[in-house]
Design a protein around this nucleic acid. Structure first.
Lengths: 212, 212
DNA sequence: GACATTAATGACTCGCGAGTCATTAATGCA
DNA sequence: TGCATTAATGACTCGCGAGTCATTAATGTC
């Protein structure tokens, strides 16, 4: 029954992989933080899921908080960088542009990868104002600028009515954030049907509620 | 230097007040839970602020969770019961009705007592689905019914355009919730000026964004 | 006033999880 | 092949806060 395997030395029980570790820990961390938030996350669990011992984490990150910050930063960039190209093309009617922008918002913040990130920051972001500022700059500010561009272009083309909405363009995407929040809180109690809500959102935007 | 006070027996160091305690503990609890959420709340602090020892809390409430549930229930009722009367009067134009309803929403969920409650439930409500269901019934369902009533009356009066908004009337108050959430997350990073936002909200509702 | 009842106390236990560090062993180099 | 370096380990410490319980003392009753 002797075979080659018996002659091979045992594979080492631990591997020394100084350069692969940080990334592995980071991605295990992202999953754990997404699922349980900062407070609820457990370093022993992160270690286990990264296939290492708890102490090893501390060889690469000085504290739970530092790991969280690194994980969030990584996540923000990977999640928010996407659809940048898709949205930067500003052509077509204002109606088309806004429809596309909103569809994209819902895709990301309600159904997509941005949802868990939004959830964690909404719940525990007040612990770390610098993260919130980053997130604000990358999502809100950037989005607001894009909206403003679309609306001003719309005014120039005679498609958009000048008015107070131009001063606080966030109001245009507000229902999408509302939907994401509602889902977070009341998914179990009573979910809102997405397609209907989306239709209503567009209708409100383009027509208001009053009869002509 | 002898006077009456010297002769009076020392006042008792502890008072036995079986019936006053629960209420006092509850109100100390409400403050603590409002300020720190469920997890962040500290029973020793609640006891101190109620002027009793920690053990005394357990004479009246079997656990932190039970105290939280009692505090939330109490709070929900006291906070949500208000402005009921004010809103039930359905007369005037639809425009007037909606303006009044929205002003009321902002007053309560952004500036008023409902804000901290909303904040706590948004952050930690998933721990206790029954509380969320109560809250949903008292706020969302009731509000949605009122909105539906206003909108259907509006349609009957020819003031409101029938359309998808009637199916998901929540969309009308969505920007108010957005504003509350934005305030929670980004107050420090970049607050939105309230009056402008409110104007934009009404304008969006009554006019949409497109030029006529 | 003496005694029984029970409200109130707060020092204590206990579980949890972040962070430490003495020990082990993988790997590179002579 | 032996030695030095350092990645990796995991049992341990330590602080925190919920929940306990033996003890104290306020109050009602005879």
């Amino acid at each position: 029954m002797t075979n080659a395997a018996d002659l091979r030395p045992d594979p080492p029980k631990t591997r020394r992989r100084k350069d692969a570790r940080p990334g592995e820990i980071l991605s295990a961390g992202i999953s754990e933080f997404e699922a349980n938030g900062f407070h609820g996350a457990n370093l022993a669990r992160i270690a286990k899921s990264a296939g290492i011992a708890k102490g090893t984490i501390y060889l690469y990150y000085p504290s739970k908080e530092a790991l969280f910050l690194a994980a969030i930063e990584e996540h923000i960039n990977s999640v928010m960088g996407e659809s940048e190209a898709e949205l930067s093309a500003v052509e077509g009617t204002t109606r088309e542009l806004l429809t596309r922008l909103l569809r994209n918002m819902y895709d990301r913040f309600v159904h997509g990868k941005a949802h868990p990130l939004f959830r964690v920051l909404l719940r525990e972001g007040d612990r770390m104002p610098s993260v919130i500022r980053d997130y604000h700059a990358i999502t809100v500010e950037r989005g607001t600028k894009l909206l403003t561009k679309i609306l001003e272009r719309g005014v120039a083309r005679g498609e958009v009515r000048p008015g107070p909405v131009l001063d606080t363009p966030q109001i245009i995407i507000a229902p999408a954030i509302f939907f994401a929040v509602h889902k977070m809180m009341f998914e179990d109690a009573q979910a809102i049907e997405f397609e209907r809500f989306f239709e209503a959102h567009l209708d409100l935007l383009f027509n208001g509620v009053l009869a002509k």
